[in-house]
């Protein structure tokens, strides 16, 4: 049972890292629906770099770098060019889907490197992800930069008037968010499932994107959502271990998604939002032109 819990936490980590990055993006008003693409690129380049050089460090650096670079590219289309953020994000995802398949194909198969050692039975990235939740929460709610990020996401004109550089703040968020998405992909291919296969994520980036909406843009709720989804997802694969003979496996496979819908409906109620002060960033997805 401990192993099931470990695997659930490790799956949650992948969702959490990517979703934290996207939460930062969205808090600054930038929506990146191409999150899965950033993860695919991060995972692929990290895998290639690690296998080629034999260094995990260089692998993770490659993942972070490509994530940041693609975040920057999305920022350029969304912030500087003031393009449609959904179109730019989808473009990134489609590009990454094809390009990672093309460049990753010769590397198909297991990584073939010694495993990254665990800490008290858990992947070190589980601890890192938990630490990043705290860091993002502190950043957003207890620093001036966090206030600036939230301001440009709510009302960029007012933020600009108060002396905040909207473009720079948003660029910072998209690059940081991209790096976290790249790290998430790298964690997948170097630690969680160290085998390169084309389109290896098969929708995990979109689950991470959904988790941000689920979290009502709060890092703590995001953590709960990621853990919940990771555990129900794991349980749905082996329901016979905990609840033998109850429901078919096909019903269980729908449980993580059904749970998400129920909780999303619950936390979207005015009562919940008012009580917890949660709301979508007002300027999310809207291009900003300095007046």
């Amino acid at each position: 049972m401990w192993e099931l819990l470990v695997r659930s936490l490790e799956a949650s980590t992948i969702f959490l890292l990517a979703a934290l990055g996207e939460l930062l993006n969205q808090r600054s008003g930038i929506l990146n629906v191409g999150l899965e693409g950033l993860m695919l690129f991060g995972g692929t380049l990290a895998f290639i770099a690690a296998q080629t050089t034999g260094s995990y460090g260089l692998g993770f650096l490659a993942g972070l770098a490509i994530g940041g670079l693609l975040g920057l590219a999305h920022g350029f289309f969304s912030i500087t060019m003031r393009g449609d953020q959904v179109v730019s994000g989808m473009g990134l995802w489609i590009l990454s889907f094809g390009l990672t398949t093309y460049i990753g194909n010769p590397y198909t198969g297991p990584l073939g490197m010694p495993r990254i050692p665990s800490i008290f039975g858990l992947s070190p990235f589980v601890y890192l992800a938990f630490a990043l939740v705290v860091a993002v929460w502190l950043l957003l709610y207890h620093t001036g930069l966090g206030l600036a990020i939230r301001s440009v996401g709510e009302n960029p004109a007012a933020a600009e008037a108060s002396g905040i550089n909207v473009a720079i703040t948003r660029y910072l968020c998209v690059v940081l968010g991209g790096m976290l998405a790249g790290l998430s992909g790298a964690t997948y291919t170097l630690s969680y499932n160290p085998v390169w296969n084309y389109n290896f994520l098969m929708g995990w980036g979109f689950v991470s994107l959904a988790l941000v909406f689920f979290s009502m843009w709060n890092p703590w709720i995001l953590l709960v959502g990621a853990l919940l989804f990771g555990m129900t997802w794991q349980l749905s694969l082996s329901p016979e271990l905990l609840l033998p003979g109850i429901l078919s496996r096909y019903v269980w496979r729908a449980v993580p998604f059904a749970t998400t819908i129920v909780i999303l409906a619950l936390i979207s109620t005015p009562w919940f939002r008012t009580r917890w002060g949660l709301a979508k960033p007002e300027a999310l997805g809207q291009p900003y032109a300095k007046e």
Partner: peptide
């Protein structure tokens, strides 16, 4: 299904 195959 690379991820599910690993978990199974």
């Amino acid at each position: 299904k690379p991820t599910e195959e690993r978990e199974v």
